[in-house]
Simulated assay, not measured.
Amino acid sequence: MQAHFFQHVPFENLGAIEPWLRTKGYSISQTCLFEQSTSPGFPPLATIDLLIVLGGSMSVNDEVEYPWLIEEKAFIRQAIAAGKTILGICLGAQLIANALGAKVYPNAVKEIGWFPITSQSSNTKLDLFQFPPSIEVFHWHGETFDLPPGAELIASSAACQHQAFQIGRSVIGLQCHLETTPTAAQALVDNCAEELIPGPFVQDAATILTADQTRFAPMGAVLVQLLEYLHHQVVSQA
C-alpha cells in the first residue's frame, strides 16, 4: 500500500500519522510543494492508495504567488473522481473544498490553540466517521470554507462551524489538526508566532506549549480511529 502526502511548508509534516502508517505497512512518499516554482510533477494517480493533503500557511486563493496550487487542486479533483481515499488537514481540507468549487475565505475569528469540537449528525444512510460528542483538539487557522457539493458536515466548533466534512466513504477534510504532536506544536509556534494576536479563540504560546498527554492522548486516539476508518476504505478498494 502506498501513502502519498502533499507538504506545503517544511515545518508541517505528517506528525502522529507517520508512525501509524508505518505500523500498517504503508510505503510513504511525498510531494514537497514548497520546493516547486512551476509544475510539481505529481506521481501517477494509479500508484496512490491513500492521499494525505497537509496544512500550510498560504491560502488556497494564492494562485498567483503559488501557481502550483492550480495543478494541486486539479490533481485532487482527479483523485476524488477516481475514488481514491483522501484525508485533507486544515489547508488540505480547504483545498479539497475549493477543488470541488466551494469558496474559501477568512473566518470570523482566528482559531489557534486547544478548543473542543462537537460531532454533527447526518440523515444520510452512509456509514460516516463518528467523532466523540465533544473532544478538545488542536487548531491553527484563520480561514474557513463552504461545504463542497455532496459533503456531509461531521464536526463543528464554537469558532468555526465547518470543522470536518466527509464526501462518500473515502474523503474526509479536517479543519483542525488531529495529527499534532508536541514537536509539531513547537514548530508552528516557532514559525507562525506572528499569528498569536490575542482574541477570543487564540491562546498564547505558553498555553499551547504546556499541553501534556492529557490533551494529546485523547486527540491521538481519535486520529487513530479516523485513520483506521480510512484504512478500511483502502483495503476494500484493493
Rank of each mutant, 00 (worst) to 15 (best):
104 V>T: 06
124 T>N: 12
198 P>M: 13
183 T>S: 03
108 A>K: 15
162 H>W: 12
156 S>I: 02
189 V>S: 10
134 S>T: 15
108 A>G: 14
163 Q>E: 15
151 A>S: 00
168 G>P: 07
175 Q>K: 05
135 I>C: 11
216 F>C: 05
217 A>G: 04
209 L>T: 03
115 F>G: 02
120 Q>D: 06
133 P>C: 07
102 A>Q: 04
117 I>L: 12
152 E>Y: 15
181 T>L: 01
182 P>I: 00
159 A>Y: 13
208 I>G: 02
162 H>P: 05
174 L>K: 02
114 W>L: 01
160 C>Y: 08
129 F>N: 10
179 E>Q: 03
219 M>S: 01
195 E>F: 00
186 Q>T: 03
202 V>K: 09
129 F>S: 10
223 L>H: 02
168 G>L: 09
197 I>M: 06
143 E>K: 13
192 C>M: 10
170 S>P: 06
211 A>Y: 00
135 I>L: 15
172 I>V: 10
178 L>A: 00
132 P>T: 14
186 Q>Y: 04
107 N>I: 09
145 F>N: 12
133 P>N: 13
141 H>W: 07
179 E>M: 01
196 L>K: 13
208 I>N: 02
186 Q>L: 04
133 P>W: 01
189 V>W: 08
128 L>W: 08
160 C>D: 13
220 G>N: 15
176 C>W: 06
105 Y>Q: 11
173 G>H: 09
220 G>P: 12
207 T>M: 10
135 I>N: 11
109 V>A: 15
155 A>T: 05
194 E>N: 14
206 A>L: 08
181 T>M: 00
144 T>E: 11
222 V>E: 06
163 Q>S: 08
207 T>K: 12
213 Q>T: 07
101 G>L: 07
127 D>S: 15
187 A>K: 04
171 V>A: 13
151 A>G: 00
204 D>T: 07
214 T>D: 07
223 L>Y: 01
139 H>M: 04
209 L>M: 05
135 I>Q: 12
146 D>W: 09
208 I>C: 01
123 N>T: 15
102 A>H: 01
167 I>C: 04
118 T>S: 13
178 L>I: 05
184 A>M: 00
197 I>Q: 10
106 P>S: 12
185 A>T: 05
194 E>C: 12
103 K>D: 14
170 S>I: 04
163 Q>W: 12
161 Q>P: 03
147 L>E: 00
207 T>L: 11
108 A>Q: 14
174 L>D: 03
159 A>G: 10
183 T>D: 00
212 D>G: 15
141 H>Y: 08
109 V>L: 13
215 R>K: 14
151 A>P: 02
135 I>T: 14
141 H>V: 09
131 F>A: 12
103 K>Q: 12
144 T>H: 13
153 L>K: 08
